[in-house]
Design a protein around this nucleic acid. Structure first.
Lengths: 176, 176
DNA sequence: CCATACTAGTTGGATGTCAAAGTATCTGCA
DNA sequence: TGCAGATACTTTGACATCCAACTAGTATGG
């Protein structure tokens, strides 16, 4: 995250001035947006990691456990988990390896499809998850750094970016 | 990035429904915002990496080269580079190692401060940077997935989040 | 002058990302 | 019925992140 202390100026505003100074005006808005998103992601991830550290979980592991807890059976094929979490199959393998090593999930062969392995939430994982979610909700998700109307406005704008990248059909499930 | 093809629904809208269904309404807006930022960062980074791949550069390396090119001397102390780029000192060491190995920068002892090492942009780095910036501007920064007014709106909202995290004094350099 | 506190940068390790390539299994069609 | 193409998951390697601990050098105050 940030080096020691705050900078005396906004580094993204400064970069934007440089972009314009070099004649790249057309790209300045986009550059500022992209680097802002990257920086805010970094800030959020640092806060998430801090909130989860007492539980021995990273955010990637937490997300997988949460996804499993929301299913009816507490299990999913790895491929489906990867699509829902929008991560690469190799990342799913990596995270499942680590959760399995910690006794929070287990791998189960699919009853009828030899290609498929299910990842199944174990009681230890479910138990850990309750406290972890409470901590995340209290420390991060109820304090996102902007007021609720602005948070919703941001989500809506970011949603257009996600849809334009092909994440989902934008007309599929409209926001209320 | 995304697994194969788009999902038939918005995974973040779905996660938000789960959050509300579990009684975590107060945290739902924040959860949606945080996961949206994380996802959009991932999308942007994938596009950036694709644009930079022909130049053999990652975004972290590109950013450091760009920062150096904006200085008067083409050189900076590693500590200062880390503060400007808002990354951990160990990350700066790592990226400088790799750029040095590729002959794009070199480490130079500080003339008067024995603790300090300067990282200096070499001609090969400067040459590579011109094409890399053109590619990034053309492929990513002029096509951020939203129109310019929305991009500016997003930057302003994200700027408040960055300020509230202590990145810089929000009154220091106001946007026009 | 010296002890202490601070700064600068490195090293080792953990983490998770994705690309590329691989093996194993399933499906659909000729 | 056989096979091409697809799917599922793993392995390997590259990449960059940060934490914790370390060494070396500088600044400051008594």
């Amino acid at each position: 995250m940030s080096g020691p202390g705050a900078l005396p100026f906004d580094p993204i505003a400064e970069a934007r001035r440089q972009w314009e100074g070099h004649g790249w005006e057309d790209a300045a808005d986009g550059m500022a947006l992209v680097t802002s998103v990257i920086r805010v992601q970094q800030l959020y991830l640092a806060r998430i990691d801090a909130a989860l550290r007492p539980f021995g979980l990273s955010f990637a592991r937490y997300e997988l456990l949460t996804l499993l807890s929301f299913t009816r059976t507490g299990a999913l094929p790895l491929s489906k988990a990867g699509r829902r979490l929008q991560v690469h199959p190799a990342s799913v393998t990596n995270v499942v390896d680590r959760l399995e090593a910690d006794g929070l999930v287990r791998r189960v062969p699919h009853p009828t499809d030899g290609r498929t392995t299910l990842v199944e939430l174990l009681p230890a994982g479910r138990d850990l998850l309750a406290g972890a979610t409470a901590a995340l909700n209290a420390q991060v998700f109820t304090q996102p750094g902007v007021a609720a109307p602005d948070a919703r406005r941001l989500v809506e704008l970011l949603r257009h970016i996600r849809a334009s990248a092909g994440d989902f059909d934008i007309d599929a499930i409209p926001l209320p």
